[in-house]
Design a protein around this nucleic acid. Structure first.
Lengths: 238, 238
DNA sequence: CACGAAGTTTGCGCAGGCGCAAGCTTTGGC
DNA sequence: GCCAAAGCTTGCGCCTGCGCAAACTTCGTG
């Protein structure tokens, strides 16, 4: 998280930032050094767009800390959340899909820190560092799988099931254990949840209220704690 | 379509099968020969599964003729169509996503012919033939884009708009000009259309009937002709 | 050419979930 | 400590689109 001072004028990024992340884990120290020296590090406040749908894909990113929502905006201005990305993953990898613009907007869901590299380095990374390529394509495969699941969900499930599923996915991906349950680790509003499940703010609110009365969840402003994942599980199948 | 006899006992596949297809278009004659000699060619009847969701990804395919629907089946047995693939495209390219099982079922929508190669050749193709890799990832990017669009559609549009959109997409991808309109080039039932748009057979039928009365489409059993694409366009935006 | 299977149409009733509206609570800034 | 803004809750009425059911048409097969 914190750049190492190293006694230099320009703070150098510490290698330990990357060594435990799948795309880089199997690389030699030297390679990682090279990669880091080409990287730019930046902090984003919650609710900032890292890049926008349609922009030329000038850079690609590694999210070091925080959460990012990948969203698309309809002609009528409605937002749809396509994906959540937790820290430790690459984003903005349009290049891996042969694109030269970003297909969606990346919006920080919490304060976040990301490294980035100019897109022209992408091909170098992929050819030079073999494990980088394979790990990246695995990530991609995983995301395609998620998208597929969302399509099936949207196509076949009722709102209540979709919201239950979304909560389960969120606590799996980004859950933090608390005394009596699992809390979603970043601020999330009813509105966010509704964009994630293709319903309205109102319906999402009603469902959460209902579940709270039944003791399945506890929620305050922008915070949701799941108390009984199993019960949600049952709801999500039903 | 038909293998060249060549006066040999084993018919050799003709190079012209591949030379005009993006992933192979820029390759040398020699490379194409090598690739073809490793390929297996096979014909599939309409409604056959080329491979099934969850199967180990033993081969990857190039669809030479016909149409394929990529479908997923829910725990309750409902089918959801994730994608349509026209001839000239690769399918079953799980490997490109770092997967070793197929993420969905590929079902022929019409009679079809496909070449296939064992998955172990995938890495060879990608490293050996550069344009193969880039073109393939472009295809992938395109499909991801389509999936994204479907998510947004399912999340925000009414049934009528979704069905209109689906028809438009189908005639764009697989349309064939006829005297008074554009016909979808493979047999498609109301049921198929409903699985594509996440609605019921009945609703799809009602919509088509309505449009037929207004002169927007003409349809018979398993066949749909779009007479007025522009009007559908308007509906799909609405 | 007759029969069964597959595909299609249409009517009717119901309900999930949305739109609208109003009021409430929490938070952060000054 | 107060106020505005952001977020949340809840009631009510309506409409889209589904479920169910029945009848009709087209096609393939023996």
């Amino acid at each position: 998280m914190k750049p190492d001072a190293h006694g230099k004028t320009l703070p150098r990024l510490d290698e330990s930032l990357l060594t435990h992340l799948p795309p880089f884990a199997r690389l030699e120290r030297r390679s990682i050094r090279t990669i880091l020296d080409q990287a730019t590090s930046r902090r984003y406040e919650a609710g900032t767009a890292i890049f926008n749908e349609g922009d030329p894909a000038e850079r690609f990113y590694m999210l070091l800390d925080g959460y990012v929502r990948v969203i698309r905006i309809t002609p009528l201005g409605e937002q749809v959340t396509a994906l959540h990305i937790p820290s430790g993953q690459l984003l903005g990898i349009a290049r891996a899909l042969g694109r030269d613009t970003y297909p969606a907007t990346a919006m920080t869901a919490s304060d976040a820190i990301a490294l980035s590299w100019p897109t022209r380095l992408w091909d170098t990374f992929v050819t030079e560092y073999e494990s980088f390529a394979t790990e990246t394509y695995k990530t991609l495969g995983h995301r395609v799988g998620e998208m597929n699941n969302r399509i099936v969900e949207l196509a076949t499930q009722q709102v209540e099931q979709r919201v239950a599923n979304a909560l389960l996915r969120l606590i799996n991906q980004t859950g933090r254990k608390v005394s009596d349950g699992i809390e979603i680790d970043f601020p999330i509003t009813r509105q966010d949840l509704s964009e994630l499940t293709a319903t309205t703010l109102h319906t999402a609110s009603r469902l959460l209220s209902g579940w709270e009365k039944q003791g399945l969840v506890r929620s305050r402003r922008k915070r949701i704690v799941v108390l009984d994942p199993h019960a949600l599980m049952l709801l999500s199948q039903g």
